[in-house]
Amino acid sequence: MCMRNALIAIALAVLANPVFAQGLGKHISESDVAAWDISILPDGTGLPAGNGTPQQGATVFASKCAVCHGENGKGATAAALVGGEPLTSGIETAKTVANFWPYATTLFDFTRRAMPWPRPRTLTNDEVYALTAFILAQNKIIGAEDVMNAQSLPKVRMPNRDGFIPRFPERIP
């Protein structure tokens, strides 16, 4: 009986999948992917638990970031993270957090996935929130006491939020 059911199941599978080799992906669960799933969406989806303040971020920044990004993010071998010319200064204007980035969530996402450059994904979530808060506060986008976490970060309104034109609007879902 068991054998017969199995044969029927195989026959149905073959009929449902006329291409010879489909259905080879190993079934996994979302929890299996959790360690890799570092995607953060602009509405805050994917932001982890934790929090940080600009003051906490200043300490982390001095020890882990300033070596490339300069004291307080003024820039060194790596890009400045504070300030920026108006975008109307010319097409080659350097794009910065203050003058360009449309979403604060991108700052958290990129810092967590890619920084520090020599040792990516070694920062704790609290450290990433703190660094995000520090850079936003240095740019006067949030207050010096504001706490960044999964609730507050997506609500941060970036100065250049409405500065973009989709190049191919008909291709945007």
Binding site: L87, T88, T93, K95, F100, W101, P102, F164, I165, R167
Partner: peptide, 18 residues
């Protein structure tokens, strides 16, 4: 959101230049 979004003369920027 940042790197591949070119700045235009009016200070706006193209996004999703696929």
């Amino acid at each position: 959101a940042r790197t591949y979004a070119p700045v235009l003369p009016n200070g706006k920027a193209y996004q999703f230049y696929f």
